[in-house]
């Protein structure tokens, strides 16, 4: 039942993108997201689309698998598009009784859809090609300058690692509990909202209890191995920037450059 979620799932591999340093990838995604919102023209989005396609191709993850991540946000995207389409003022394109569609509305709706799609695609490329451990290592490293002002970077990263580590476990557990209660004749599909909410109780209570039990067990297990937080802690795998990362940064600089060019061009000619 929960086995088909792609968002935030790791797709193991050894491609160029997989081997990039997680710090490179995290910063790249931040730059990528910023540029999504800076683009002013379709030309800019074309550049971004080409970059995204190149990334997916070099990651060797099947396109179908990456696109599956878009499915859960579809309704959200459609609603956003409809709002932008009908509620934007400007040059009127179509008028039919109380509905008016403007040129600016169409443009904005398409932009919004593109932005949301690229947002999800960009972040899914990051999570699909980076193992959760590498991801949190990268985040810890990037946050470590903030340690000086009292941000517990290591603890935050550890909390994230643990949370990510337990997502599949808890999903599996939920699946098991749902099956067990279904076998006892629990009915989750029929009835009104209140009845359906009530039907969740036999799932939520065992789930909470097991989550607390797991947290307790894990805390004891960590204590037993003398875990004392980030102080003086060394790591098995040190993060190291490699040649590939230089190339990655070069590609990223090219992307930003092209987007800036596209924006400048948009100021001169209107596409």
């Amino acid at each position: 039942m929960f086995k088909d979620i792609t968002l935030g799932q790791y797709f193991p591999g050894h491609s160029f993108i997989h081997r990039l340093d997680p710090r490179t990838k995290i910063l790249a995604v931040i730059i990528y997201i910023t540029s999504i919102f800076c683009i002013k023209s379709f030309l800019g989005y074309a550049v971004l689309a080409a970059f995204t396609v190149l990334c997916v191709l070099s990651s060797k993850i099947p396109f179908k698998f990456v696109l599956k991540g878009l499915k859960p946000i579809m309704i959200f995207v459609i609603i956003t598009a409809i709002f932008n389409l009908f509620l934007t003022d400007g040059k009127i394109l179509v008028r039919w009784s109380f509905i008016t569609i403007t040129y600016e509305g169409v443009r904005l709706a398409i932009f919004m859809v593109l932005r949301l799609f690229f947002l999800v695609l960009g972040t899914s490329i990051l999570t699909l090609t980076t193992s959760p451990i590498a991801l949190t290592d990268g985040i810890e490293y990037l946050l470590s300058p903030l340690k000086k002002v009292g941000v517990p970077a290591h603890e935050l990263a550890m909390m994230m690692t643990i949370a990510l580590r337990f997502v599949p476990t808890l999903l599996e557990e939920t699946d098991k509990i749902i099956k067990a209660q279904t076998a006892r004749g629990a009915d989750f599909e029929s009835g009104n909202l209140i009845n359906r909410a009530k039907a969740m109780i036999p799932i939520l209570i065992p789930l909470f209890i097991s989550a607390f039990r797991r947290a307790d067990d894990l805390a004891v297990a960590m204590e037993c191995r003398c875990y004392r937080g980030g102080e003086n802690r060394t790591r098995l795998r040190e993060l190291k920037m490699k040649k590939g990362d230089v190339f990655g940064w070069f590609a990223l600089v090219c992307l930003v450059g092209l987007i800036v060019l596209a924006n400048v061009a948009y100021g001169r000619i209107n596409i």
């Binding site: 098991k176 509990i177 099956k179 067990a180 209660q181 279904t182 076998a183 006892r184 004749g185 009915d187 109780i201 036999p202 209570i205 065992p206 209890i209 097991s210």
Partner: peptide, 20 residues
């Protein structure tokens, strides 16, 4: 399916974790 499920009783592994 509900009727069938009433006819078959399944005790899963570690069933004590389903008590609520």
């Amino acid at each position: 399916m509900r009727k069938i499920r009433f006819k078959t009783g399944l005790v899963m592994q570690y069933p004590e974790y389903q008590l609520f």
